[in-house]
Deep mutational scan, measured.
Amino acid sequence: MQYKLVINGKTLKGETTTKAVDAETAEKAFKQYANDNGVDGVWTYDDATKTFTVTE
């Protein structure tokens, strides 16, 4: 399945996608991506759209 990440950071904004077997695996990949880019915020997930959002 394909999952999307929407980033609403202080210095980084945008979107990225990943393919993963489940939401938990996608979340780990997205959190690593956010961490690598210095984004630390509040996470939400919408199962209907398979979209994670992180807001600083």
Rank of each mutant, 00 (worst) to 15 (best):
D22F: 04
K10W: 14
A20F: 10
Q2D: 13
V42W: 11
D46V: 06
V42H: 12
T11P: 05
D22C: 04
G38N: 15
I7P: 01
G41C: 02
E27Q: 12
T25H: 14
D40F: 12
E24S: 11
K13Y: 08
A29K: 08
Q2F: 12
T18R: 07
V21Q: 13
T16Y: 15
D46N: 10
K31M: 09
A23F: 12
A20P: 02
Y45L: 02
D46H: 06
G41M: 02
V54R: 00
D36Y: 08
T16H: 15
T17G: 05
A20E: 04
T17C: 07
N37D: 03
T18K: 06
K4P: 01
V6I: 10
M1D: 14
T49K: 08
W43S: 01
V21S: 11
V6K: 08
T44A: 10
K13F: 11
D22T: 07
T51S: 04
G9E: 03
V6R: 07
T11G: 07
A23G: 04
T49A: 08
N35C: 07
E15C: 06
F52Y: 06
Y45R: 02
W43P: 00
V42I: 12
G38P: 02
V39A: 04
I7Y: 08
T18N: 04
V42Q: 10
L5M: 06
A34P: 00
E15W: 11
A48K: 12
A26I: 02
G41E: 01
V21I: 14
D46I: 05
N37E: 09
K31C: 04
L5T: 01
T53D: 03
A26E: 00
T25K: 06
T17R: 06
G41Y: 03
I7V: 11
A20N: 03
K50I: 03
L12A: 06
D46K: 04
K31L: 09
L5V: 03
A34N: 04
N35G: 12
A29E: 12
G38S: 08
N35K: 15
T49D: 05
N35Q: 11
K31D: 02
D40E: 13
V39P: 02
F52V: 02
Q32V: 10
L5R: 00
D47K: 13
T55H: 08
N37H: 15
D46Y: 04
D22V: 03
L12R: 04
Y3D: 01
D22L: 04
V6W: 05
Y45K: 01
V21M: 12
K10R: 09
E27N: 05
D40L: 08
N8K: 10
A26P: 01
F30P: 00
K19R: 11
K31S: 04
V54H: 01
N37A: 15
T16C: 08
K10A: 15
Y33N: 02
A29P: 01
A26F: 01
K28Q: 11
T51P: 00
F52G: 00
T11W: 15
K31V: 08
D47L: 07
D40H: 15
W43H: 01
T55W: 08
A20M: 04
G9W: 07
K19W: 14
V39C: 04
K10V: 14
I7Q: 02
K19P: 05
T18L: 11
Y3S: 01
T49I: 07
K10G: 14
W43M: 04
Q2A: 09
V54Q: 00
T16K: 13
E24Y: 10
L5C: 06
A20V: 05
K28S: 10
K4D: 02
N37W: 12
K19A: 10
I7C: 04
T25C: 06
A34K: 01
F30H: 02
T11S: 13
E24I: 15
A34Q: 02
N35I: 14
Y3V: 01
E56K: 03
Y45T: 01
G38T: 04
N37C: 07
K10I: 14
V42E: 13
D40C: 07
N35D: 13
N35Y: 13
T55V: 09
I7H: 03
